[in-house]
Design a protein around this nucleic acid. Structure first.
Lengths: 212, 212
DNA sequence: GACTGTGAAGCCATTCACAGCT
DNA sequence: AGCTGTGAATGGCTTCACAGTC
């Protein structure tokens, strides 16, 4: 049971590299150095090499990396060499926006169901995906093979929704509600708090600026 | 020019603490220990104390912290003791969702204008806020006193929009387009890539799980 | 006795610098 | 000569442990 600890920061950067490589590939670039990647995405070249070194040797000394190959390798590392069906709970503005968000589909994520407890929304189709009542969660997750659940309900409902998603068989949760969820350790959980990002900006505009 | 370096992770946690404290306050809790905060938000108590210590001494030894006071202090640190007008460029699904997102208003962020280059969208009101053509950017930013610009346009248009926002006088950018923007150093920039968060989940579901 | 505030220790991530290929 | 891959050094964040205060 060897566990090599990989920094989360590395995963985030791999995701950025993959997008940059895809762009280079579209431009017809065949070979690229760690330095060029570094400049393209705004990190150091040593960082690029270290990040890649966690997963193997993908380059050729004296030459660089083959763009297509490296891109494919990174996509595989990120688990994006397959489709990822997912469900969204909460058909409010954010849930609706996410269900139509092109950036997901591009990377292999596709929405198999959206859920809401508002009877007025049930049956509607958003971007071709039906809005179901929460009672259908288990059924749709199973049929669609969804391993990921996205939570876009108001904070007070989020824990309950998380429980229902886990109960229905989902293995990973992406939570947009500004609340700390408690889930069993085997469930992968990530929180995205949209306000936090604005608050880092306001902190930097105010406090940090004041003391420099 | 003394610059105390404050970890970004600290700012993120302060934001979480503030929400937890607000919740405690609503429940009528008057005093709270670092340990109780720690358990409530899932970090260590030493971490809570260290985070707060960057900014002063807010507690009483042997007692703990006054909930209301500490909350107010943190809000001030984050710069949330004032209103923050902002503009959103890109009236697609995401921009629309964000403009209606209640979580922003709660924390003092309010949208003074939404911009799009699609003539069909111009003049519409989203949640009481008008959709303007990009040509009105400078005017609306100035009148509304917006210091923050949110970018929710497709990736190819993002750099151009960033330039226009900076030109119009905005000091900070929150970018949702999956692209690396280049901006002058005095402009605060944060990137939110919604797909990256899903990709960390798929990495953890796939790779990490495989080697444990 | 309880809990904060903080120097010191420990740990993890990034950067450096160079050996090793092509 | 050019560029990767990597051990060693550095820097920064977190945890420890306890002195200080109520």
């Amino acid at each position: 049971m060897k566990t090599i600890k990989i920094p989360e920061a590395t995963i985030i950067r791999l995701s950025v590299y993959s997008r940059y490589l895809a762009q280079c590939d579209r431009r017809g670039i065949v070979t690229i150095s760690s330095n060029e990647i570094a400049e393209g995405v705004g990190v150091s070249s040593a960082q690029v090499r270290k990040d890649l070194a966690y997963f193997g040797e993908f380059g050729t000394r004296g030459v660089g990396y083959n763009v297509k190959d490296l891109h494919r390798h990174i996509m595989k590392i990120l688990g994006l060499n397959q489709k990822w069906p997912l469900v969204i709970v909460g058909a409010g503005n954010l849930g609706t926006a996410l269900s139509m968000y092109g950036g997901f589909r591009e990377r292999g994520f596709h929405v198999v169901g959206i859920f809401d407890d508002d009877p007025n929304k049930i049956g509607y189709k958003l971007n071709g995906v039906e809005v179901f009542p929460i009672s259908k969660l288990k059924e749709v997750v199973a049929e669609g093979g969804a391993k990921i659940g996205v939570i876009t309900v108001p904070a007070p409902a989020a824990q309950e929704v998380a429980n229902a998603l886990i109960e229905s068989g989902v293995k990973a949760l992406l939570n947009f509600a500004p609340v700390v969820l408690s889930v069993p350790p085997e469930i992968e959980l990530r929180n995205v708090d949209l306000s936090v990002n604005l608050e880092i900006l306001t902190f930097n505009l105010g406090y940090r600026r004041g003391i420099d």
